[in-house]
Design a protein around this nucleic acid. Sequence first.
DNA 1: TCTTATTAGTTACTAATTGTAAGTAATTAT
DNA 2: ATAATTACTTACAATTAGTAACTAATAAGA
Lengths: 110, 110
Amino acid sequence: MDQSTLCPRFEKGMQLLSKRWTVLIIYQLLSGPKRFGTIESSIPISGRLLSERLKDLESEGIVNRHIYPEIPVRIEYSLTEKGFALEPIIRDMEQWCKQWIELEEETTVR
Amino acid sequence: MDQSTLCPRFEKGMQLLSKRWTVLIIYQLLSGPKRFGTIESSIPISGRLLSERLKDLESEGIVNRHIYPEIPVRIEYSLTEKGFALEPIIRDMEQWCKQWIELEEETTVR
DNA sequence: TCTTATTAGTTACTAATTGTAAGTAATTAT
DNA sequence: ATAATTACTTACAATTAGTAACTAATAAGA
């Protein structure tokens, strides 16, 4: 019983963007190219998933992967035009969160 | 090794918004209050998860639940101010998807 | 030579989340 | 008595995520 009146591009896009960590990874890349380890330490994601997500984002044309054959190897991830087109949306999401999301207080012992 | 420089509200908010189906549910409610069954048939989500997501959204103050004690009972879900504050963001996401997401062609038998 | 360090992952395994299908309660219609 | 309707639950299988240890290639240090 799904007479999905939904735009299939929207549905597919949301499937991608609403995977856990995806937006936060793109967010990290808004400020410029980053290496695997840098992204890994800036958000609490595991290496396994970061590797998986970066592959997805690369295959969707949102992220570029550039290899510098140094020793040890250096690999930089950066946003494509398609990726940068998300910048205003992600900045707005950040603003929405800052305005509307409340954190639960730690119950501090006094 | 996570010296998370990330705004905790942003992180928490994204954890919420990037749960599967969440944005699409809110999107359905942008056009006005909707009943459980209506949402269920407009996106390919299961009843189990829709129920779970609506509870989350209600407890986060994004969605209101209004009971009309008719027979059979009618329940309507609508957006709160916090929920409607997401409207421009979700519309922009829809636009981004329409512009950048490509669908894989069905391999048709000829 | 042997050990350690570095980067960018991968592997194996467990835990948590999702999907599927059937079931429930309350009531009216047939 | 049976079926239909709505808004869910429940039980269980399948998929995805999290954790921790491991790998390859090379260089520096003891």
